[in-house]
Design a protein around this nucleic acid. Structure first.
Length: 557
RNA sequence: GUGCCUGUAGCUCAAUGGAUAGAGCGCUGGACUCCGGAUCCAGAGGUUGCGGGUUCGACUCCCGCCAGGCACGCCA
């Protein structure tokens, strides 16, 4: 099945129980199957279901129903199962015994904040994300990438990987030159110098005017009408530092901090870029044409050759990025995950080609793409562009809807789909908001525990679990057992929305349970204890999940 | 023109080749003298963009169209 796995060799306990049993039955039959499904059964089809009979039927060229019935017989003698039925064309539907359900809750109470965590995998991986050009404030689009990267990092870490979060700083190249020059122009404009205009492809955002104003306070008119190499470097590095600082501050508001920041310029200065050129040259993968140095991408992929060194002698972003990945490889990572906006998708094939040319193994780099965010104010679509300076910044969005909503909303949809973010709706803070729905269920549980003391029912961990067993209790417990599987799917598919979907479902099942069952009933102390324990298990799973999402767990709302 | 992503209920989105395609919002109608009604229960709502193909079985895989987004630079 999965490559991620957990310390029990896969997923939730109940699922493992079924899986192991099926395996042993197959073994008894002298058969073997590479993989088969064990999943949550639809309503009215038991608790868990497997498609194993279909797969075996295909292999043996027999009737799936007959095979399913033979397998089902083997389950009748097993005390861990209350029921095993054949349904439809050959599905196997299982109902687990009460003692198996009890074990789930006991395990969660026992493991607490470690429930769902996997043992160390001794795999060193890196997530690189939010590597926006430090040429202006982070936009909403960057925010989506940052949150996805941060949540995936948290999940992978929880699942036993050694994870490093890194941000690449594009502090070399033409964009930074333009940034510095744009700032110099704003500076001079404020000082009353006439006839200066920011170039067409320069940075026109208001933030540079503010920055120039502060710069004047710091250094006065020292660089008025002065433009030379020294001044250029000064404005470049000043603008860069300031932008970087504000980017970090914004991300920190969202609870995102990096383990490492990596400078593009350092790759030029330490010779890695030259080394890449040398290696590629030795291997015959580059050539000169029109005064530029080209990479033979066409030898590896269906694409045209790409420039590495421009005719003016400067390096392309592509070249430094190759050097960057060579550096990552040498740092000993087992795997690199780059998170890119979809507008960079054309970059991946040639980067992969270059890594291949350098002799870096296939599969070292995995690129995760996310589609961009369409920001709306009501019906009006807000067009975002850093360079023109028309954007709603990530900071503004956080101001408007809060950290929890921002993080949750960026996670709640498949990264591969376009995200419509209606600020008007998000600022409503109404019950439309799934994050409130989930947090409300958490606060409700906390409230029950506060109430329990008032009612004189002291919570006793592990007590009364055998009293549980009605349908709401069972379905809720089943959901708890699926938490590790939800995490695994989120990790394997790089889809934080698997986790948000899991949480909404868990919250709904809790609310439903809560409505039908009185938890604190002085007339039934044993049952009250059982239900309190179930609530505690839900609380633990919710907290673990919310922590991975970076969303807060309110005691009260 | 070429490549990538997307197309599912009125809207926003789910559904590792499986059972009757599911949630939320909105709409209609119900539910606390009781642990938090920011909740719950029920109902209406579908030719999964269109057309072929693969097979026991397709929203899912393959081919061809249509629509939207993105990218096709000696920008990053």
């Amino acid at each position: 099945m999965g490559t991620v796995g957990s310390k029990d060799g896969g997923v939730g306990m109940l699922v493992d129980k079924v899986r192991d049993k099926i395996k042993s039955v197959l073994d008894k039959f002298g058969e073997e199957l590479e993989s088969f499904k064990v999943e949550r059964a639809p309503e009215n089809f038991g608790e868990l279901a497997s498609n194993v009979a279909f797969l075996l039927a295909k292999k043996l060229k027999k009737n799936p129903r007959e095979i399913a019935e033979r397998i089902a017989l083997e389950f009748e003698k097993d005390e861990s199962f209350d029921k095993c039925e054949v349904a439809g064309p050959g599905f196997l539907n299982f109902v687990l015994s009460r003692s198996e359900h009890v074990k789930v809750i006991e395990k969660i109470l026992d493991e607490g904040e470690n429930y769902g965590r996997s043992e160390k995998k001794h795999m060193k991986v890196q997530f690189e994300f939010a590597s926006a050009n430090p040429t202006g404030p982070l936009t909403v689009g960057h925010g989506r990438q940052a949150v996805i990267g941060d949540v995936l990092s948290r999940i992978y870490s929880f699942l036993g990987y050694e994870v490093q979060k890194e941000m690449y700083i594009n502090d070399a190249g033409r964009q930074i030159d333009l940034l510095g020059y744009s700032l110099w122009i704003r500076y001079n404009q404020l000082l009353g110098v006439e006839g200066l205009e920011i170039p067409e492809d320069g940075y026109r955002g208001e933030y540079l005017v503010d920055m120039a104003r502060e710069l004047i306070e710091e250094i006065g008119e020292r660089y008025k009408n002065v433009w030379n190499d020294e001044v250029r470097e000064f404005f470049k590095s000043y603008a860069l530092e300031r932008n970087l600082k504000s980017m970090k501050a914004t991300l920190k508001r969202l609870g995102i901090e990096f383990d490492n920041y990596f400078s593009e310029k350092s790759l030029i200065e330490d010779g890695t870029v030259d080394e890449v050129l040398r290696i590629l040259n030795e291997k015959g993968h580059i050539y000169e044409k029109d005064g530029a140095v080209w990479f033979r991408a066409s030898n590896f992929i269906d694409d045209s050759d790409k420039v590495l060194v421009k005719s003016d002698g400067s390096f392309t972003y592509f070249l430094t990025d190759i050097a960057y990945h060579l550096n990552k490889f040498r740092r000993g990572f087992d795997r690199i995950y780059d998170i890119f906006g979809s507008d960079h998708h054309g970059h991946e094939p040639r980067l992969q080609a270059a890594l291949k040319a350098l002799g870096i193994p296939d599969g070292f780099l995995k690129v995760i793409f996310h589609q961009y965010v369409t920001l709306k104010r009501g019906r009006e679509i807000v067009k975002m562009s850093t360079r023109k300076g028309e954007f709603v910044t990530l900071d503004e969005l956080i101001d408007a809807v809060g950290v929890d909503a921002v993080r949750y909303f960026f996670c709640m949809m498949d990264p591969n789909t376009h995200l419509n973010f209606d600020m008007e709706l998000a600022t409503k803070k109404s019950e439309d908001n799934p994050v409130y729905y989930i947090q409300y269920s958490y606060a409700r549980i906390r409230s029950i525990f506060r109430k329990s003391e008032e009612k004189g029912i002291k919570f006793e961990p592990g007590k009364g679990l055998e009293k549980l067993g009605n349908s709401k209790e069972r379905t809720l417990t089943l959901s708890l057992a699926f938490f590790p599987q939800a995490l695994e799917e989120a990790a394997e598919e790089f889809a934080p929305n698997k986790l948000t979907n899991y949480l909404v479902d868990l919250a709904a099942r809790f609310h439903s349970f809560y409505t039908e069952n009185v938890v604190l009933d002085p007339e039934n102390p044993e049952l009250s204890q059982g239900r309190l324990n179930l609530c505690k298990a839900v609380e633990i799973v919710m907290r673990n999940a919310l922590n991975l999402l970076g969303v807060s767990c309110p005691e009260r709302m």
